[in-house]
Design a protein around this nucleic acid. Structure first.
Length: 343
DNA sequence: TATCCGTGGCC
DNA sequence: TGGCCAAGGAT
């Protein structure tokens, strides 16, 4: 940690030569649209660029401005978000858009950004740096990895987070002096995504190779070290697909908060450590076994049995919905399996 | 501080 | 196949 930080000019030169074109990105040196930066940063939380791009394009097409998003019905936004995961982000997205629209635009300070729904320390720094050239280094997983390697920080995450964050701040000191925090932040992202990768980093073509302490010591790929994660428990449940005589299916809305909050689902049992007793929502005559779906969430794995039946009229309490109604991926899998069993 | 919160791709 | 990983935030 007493090492000198590498040259920001070196990284910025590399960035201008190798910069990736992304839908939310402005040309080097050009101020980006804060709305696009914000929307992309929310979508990119724990989500890969490849997964985000089509969602980002659909959102921009439907909601070109933060004012348009602020006026949208919540169901439209949740529906457009369906499949992207972490649905609290979509709820916070709406809340944030409404606050920002009321303010007449995005605030430009880190503190004011940090106070908005769904914006934490990282995202405030990212928007501040990228959209407003605030002299900060947003510390995401990429930047943590780069900083840990440059300074050969061997302490394990998450305990080492503060140490690595301090190291990342040192990386940005020169860039701040050069008035290029926006390009510098994005350069760090690109370096982490394409060169300084978690596995098999391309050290031989890295613009910072000569300054990298971990590379010099031959331990770049080992850093940052991480504590082992807890084992994922398995839960079991059953869902019921009911299709009526005109081809509509019976869905219900999940509670507004918590897992898959506010999204549509098939009716079913709770998800428990052992298969719960099943009580079909209607006395259909020919229930078909549509198989079992395995779905992995962050902190548990779900084994979900799917039962399907045709009925004349859907029971009360269920919403008659088209089969292509937007819903979380887990439920999309279950609907697909159920419909296949009814053929 | 620890837990909860999705999904898909990669090796 | 299974564990890891991805531009984290809220509580």
């Amino acid at each position: 940690m007493s090492l000198d930080p590498p040259s920001s000019a070196l990284l910025l030169r590399w960035y201008r030569a190798h910069r990736r074109e992304l839908p939310w990105r402005a040309a080097p040196g050009v101020r980006a649209d804060p709305y696009r930066v914000w929307l992309s940063e929310i979508m990119l939380q724990q989500t890969t660029v490849g997964a985000v791009i089509p969602y980002f394009r659909r959102f921009i097409e439907r909601f070109p401005t933060v004012a348009a998003l602020a006026q949208a019905p919540e169901d439209d936004v949740l529906g457009l978000w369906a499949g992207l995961g972490y649905y609290a982000r979509a709820r916070n997205l709406i809340a944030c858009a409404r606050v920002v629209a009321g303010m007449g635009g995005f605030p430009e300070t880190i503190e004011a950004l940090r106070a908005l729904p769904g914006i934490g320390g990282y995202t405030a720094a990212a928007i501040g740096a990228i959209a407003f050239d605030r002299p900060v280094v947003p510390v995401d997983g990429n930047v943590e990895r780069v900083a840990a390697r440059i300074f050969a920080i061997e302490a394990s995450l998450p305990k080492a987070k503060p140490t690595i964050a301090a190291a990342a701040a040192r990386l940005g000191e020169q860039a701040a002096a050069r008035r290029a925090p926006s390009d510098f932040a994005q350069a760090l992202f690109d370096l982490g995504a394409t060169i300084c990768t978690p596995r098999n980093p391309s050290c031989m073509i890295c613009p910072w190779r000569d300054a990298c302490s971990a590379h010099r010591r031959g331990i770049a790929e080992e850093l940052p070290r991480k504590e082992k994660k807890a084992v994922r428990p398995v839960r079991f449940g059953t869902v019921f697909l009911l299709r009526d005589s005109v081809g509509m299916i019976g869905l219900r809305r999940r509670p507004p908060k918590g897992l898959l909050g506010g999204m549509f689902e098939l009716p079913g049992t709770d998800w428990e450590s052992a298969m719960p007793e099943t009580e079909p929502p209607i006395a259909a005559t020919d229930w078909r076994d549509a198989g079992t779906i395995r779905h992995v969430f962050t902190h548990f794995e779900l084994s979900l049995r799917v039962m399907a039946a045709s009925v004349v009229v859907l029971p009360r309490g269920l919403t008659a919905a088209p089969v292509d109604t937007p819903m979380p991926t887990l439920m999309r899998k279950a609907v697909t399996a159920g419909l296949a069993a009814l053929r």
